[in-house]
Design a binder for these strands. Sequence first.
DNA 1: GCCAACGTTGGC
DNA 2: GCCAACGTTGGC
Length: 135
Amino acid sequence: MGKWLLKSEPTTWSWADQIREVTTKWDGVRNYQARNHMKKMNLGDLCFFYHSGIKEPAIVGIVTIIKTYEPDPVDPSFGHVTVEVCETLAFPVTLKAIKMEPSLENLPLIKQSRLSVMPVTESEWATLLTMGSKE
DNA sequence: GCCAACGTTGGC
DNA sequence: GCCAACGTTGGC
């Protein structure tokens, strides 16, 4: 099962919005690399939900893929997956904390800060999950 | 608000 | 196909 990380600016789409609406089409991605990652997502894959563009950027929750990639009828070069709320992390995992963890230095979040959809390895996932379950 | 990183566009 | 100009993202 695949593991991923999705970025969102809270002013555009926040975790509170996600909780309220439960399911969402993850659209608006206009970057080929990010789109290619979305195309590789399978049903049941889990994604960290990351808040960017704020004072304390952080992973705040987890969503799951309930519908795989579909092209946008208007602009078929791009498209969306559909996600559903899975869980809220007990403690947000801040970018600051991620940067302090040596085993996470290869996360694209660090090296390729502009990428909005990225893969996460199983071990990175486990590390982040642990960080999100305790203070 | 600034700036670095980097993807995209368009002229040649 | 190269590369300069430009636009966007996102951390600080």
